[in-house]
Design a protein around this nucleic acid. Structure first.
Length: 308
RNA sequence: CGCGGGGUAGAGCAAUUGGUAGCUCGUCGGGCUCAUAACCCGGAGGUUGCAGGUUCAAGUCCUGUCCCCGCAA
């Protein structure tokens, strides 16, 4: 089966790799244009999907837009029977969706219809979900709203960060797209419509989500730290007046009458901060001051004593 | 050549106008204690990222270079 693969970040790599390893003819790969990355020289960095495709000798296309007809012409020449999209980062216009005889399918990292959009993995953790998963679906014009082919769930462990979950779901997606591809080739792929009334959105993350609101519960703040890991991260200025990024923390059962955001203890164990409910505090274990490296709370306190 | 911050003891930080490189933690030894991530006493550990330059004198000023971090993506 001739397949065109569209994807950009690490998440999409196992899917591409799986399809290629399974012997499908991946005749072309679309990825986002290389973006300047790097502090000093603004070097262009190939996307993870591009790098993998090139190492396999697959032609790579990186159009700025899919809507000027160029991409459509390229696709017509590639003659894919199926287009597989995984975190490509762009909407596909209808003329592309309708091009491949077997359609376009998408690997999405949530249990659709929940968490449609750009950052489903992060939002599942931010919202304190106990489980999430991967959905393979036929693509529709509307964002992440297509009929479901396959769906599999996985529990989110209490300490898991978005980064860890990201890796797990990428692997899961890589396995599931193979199953789905086989079903599509055999003509047995399911088409289960989503319950659109239960749809929720998982919009792009932004730096504005970083500051911690200490009136929330310790668990909610912990979810924020895990869900925004490693980017944009959770931060607070209650320690030094400057925004310090919180890399690691834990919820500790400890009663306090101190107001939200008050530092009630600072020791080698960590920095305990009062939150919005009295029974628990958030213990900061690992942090990073502006301009500095990330370090343990104990190391930070060695150079920045806090009187409690 | 996009903007900015920073390299000082194992870790984290200080060091006025250039003038004996200090502090906290850790570490080692000893003491106290039923005990401890607690406390007390003592010790070790630095060519201040690297290379040049200015100076009687450079962690500090100048030039170059390597590396780290934040913004931006």
């Amino acid at each position: 089966m001739r397949i065109v693969f569209m994807g950009t970040p690490d998440f999409a790599v196992p899917s591409l790799e799986g399809l290629a390893e399974a012997g499908y003819q991946v005749v072309g790969v679309f990825s986002q244009p290389d973006r300047p990355v790097g502090r000093h020289h603004n070097k262009l960095q190939p996307t993870p999907v591009k790098a993998r495709a090139l190492s396999r000798g697959i032609p790579v296309y990186q159009p700025e837009t899919l809507r000027d007809g160029t991409a459509l012409a390229v696709l017509r020449e590639l003659e894919p029977e199926l287009i597989v999209v995984a975190a490509y980062g762009r909407f596909l216009p209808d003329e592309i969706l309708n091009l491949p005889p077997k359609g376009c399918v998408n690997v999405h990292s949530s249990l659709l219809p929940k968490y449609r959009g750009a950052a489903p993995i992060n939002w599942a953790i931010l919202k304190g979900e106990a489980e999430t998963g991967v959905t393979i679906m036929h693509m529709a014009s509307e964002l992440d709203a297509g009929d479901i082919i396959l769906q599999r769930s996985t529990p989110i462990s209490p300490e898991e960060t978005a980064e860890m979950l990201y890796g797990r779901l990428a692997e899961l997606g890589g396995k599931m797209i193979l199953e789905a591809a086989a079903q599509i080739e055999a003509g047995t792929a399911a088409r289960t419509p989503q319950d659109h009334t239960k749809a929720t959105l998982a919009p792009m993350l932004s730096k504005e989500m970083s500051p911690v609101d200490w009136t929330r519960s310790a668990q909610e703040i912990f979810n924020q730290i895990r869900g925004l890991y490693p980017w944009p991260g959770a931060s607070t200025d209650i320690i030094s007046g400057e925004p310090i990024k919180i890399w690691g923390a834990q919820v500790v059962e400890k009663h306090t009458d101190a107001g939200p955001g008050a530092i009630i203890a600072a020791s080698k164990q960590g920095i305990d901060v009062a939150c919005g409910e009295l029974q628990h505090v958030l213990r900061i274990l690992e942090l990073q001051p502006p301009g500095g490296k990330r370090m343990t709370a104990a190391a930070y306190l060695a150079g920045h004593p806090i009187q409690v």
